[in-house]
Write a protein that binds this DNA or RNA. Structure first.
Lengths: 239, 239
DNA sequence: TCTTGTGAAGGGGTTCACAGCC
DNA sequence: GGCTGTGAACCCCTTCACAAGA
């Protein structure tokens, strides 16, 4: 996690807060929409509303990138689109492989948001030999045995794991061994990776559980309805 | 967001930090695995490793739930499973509807992690009348016009949106109108909802963009390879 | 006058380190 | 002796409020 100390105090002292990085894609999306409507400039207030954050936060975020706005006016839409894209590394091409072509893998392969932002699906891989050759999103599914050569040949540095939980660690090891240094994990498992490899995880059921927690709260709010006898313990007790 | 002031200082002063809530499902998963292997007790160190966090954080998290451990021994696995499940509201049944049965919607419908944690898919909805009646994960897809009656009849309070971005806000409005108060949004849009409705979003392309940001950093680390002429500006400049 | 850019204050979360208890 | 539970320190992020500047 701790992204080894940086260097190069180029334009501004490097070191954009992680929380800011996580919001840049949000701003980029909102700006892209404005750009498509040929809106020339936008204020922090307007853009913040479109991105679903508050304007002070947005201005603070942009201040880490540099002084890209004009006081009394706002931000130049095209210019910001470019600067944020560059900061995120989207001005270059990122070949990715998707491993595990079930429903989820297929959904990811078909997802338009990837291609439009510099992510190119270099290959779809699956352990099921029966799937090999089948076209998904216009690409042929290839057998997992080709993983190493595909990663090497295409200089893939980002892998997406959409396999069942049981296969995820092994796939990870192979990806890392082949040279992948960033992994987006959809399998509900904790992955172990060497230093220098980034993992982000998306867990569908965790999100629902968090919602359930808050939902439960709401139910208990007004009506005092939730039954919780307070002495409510199961048969098993701690030693 | 600010979950209105609580009440009931029942077992302990209510108010579990949001960051802790987000980790409870992680602990629960690790504990469930231990439970299946019939492991009776576990130390904070072991459990933390299994969940991918550090042990101090885990102990602090558990301290918000109560004193469920035994000093010198550890935590009783079954007991903790129960307590966390209860805290998350997973001891009750949560009917959910999934709207938008494309690849992603189908993947969600098939996802085992839901059913196993108290989430029951009450219905699959899609605007495409041609899909109606088609079986997905054993359930017939129903037309979006049935949304209101299905939500009411099944007392659905959680909705999952897997539609294209363009349809997401309208679907949200209908869900909220029908009584849904928690939404899990997979569409790449900012949703507007009234107070009292919770929205969590999962954005596939944002995760990749964050990885790209870090990946770019790595590339520039050792070799100083990334070209960034520093005066690198596009044709468009701010006014 | 209007909006950005930012010090400063405030709040939350993480980590440390050890007292408390088995 | 071992492990939990937790005050306290620390750090990061958010929010405020206003000076700076077009």
């Amino acid at each position: 996690m701790a992204t080894g100390r940086s260097h190069r105090p180029a334009t501004r002292s490097r070191g954009i807060p992680e929380a800011t990085v996580a919001r840049l894609p949000l701003y980029l999306r909102a700006l892209t929409a404005l750009s498509e409507r040929s809106v020339p400039t936008v204020s922090s207030e307007e853009l913040a509303a479109a991105a679903g954050v508050n304007s002070a936060k947005l201005r603070k975020d942009f201040s880490y990138l540099g002084s890209y706005g004009t006081r009394g006016v706002g931000y130049d839409v095209e210019y910001l689109v470019y600067q944020i894209s560059r900061e995120l590394g989207l001005t270059q091409d990122w070949p990715v492989v998707i491993v595990g072509i079930g429903n989820l893998g297929a959904a990811l392969a078909n997802y338009g948001g990837f291609a439009s932002r510099g992510f190119r699906v270099a290959a779809l891989l699956d352990a099921d030999a029966g799937l090999a050759g089948r076209l998904v999103a216009g690409l042929p599914v290839r057998h997992i045995d080709e993983l190493e050569s595909i990663v090497a040949d295409n200089q893939v540095s980002i892998g997406v794991i959409a396999t069942p939980a049981g296969a995820a660690q092994e796939v990870t090891d192979r990806l890392v061994g082949a040279g992948v240094t960033s992994i987006l994990n959809f399998a509900p498992t904790v992955l172990t990776v060497p230093d220098g490899v980034d993992v982000r995880k998306v867990d569908l059921s965790i999100e629902l559980q968090i919602l359930a927690f808050h939902e439960q709260r709401k139910a208990g709010e007004g009506e005092n309805g939730r039954q919780e006898p307070d002495g409510d313990v199961p048969a098993v007790m701690p030693a």
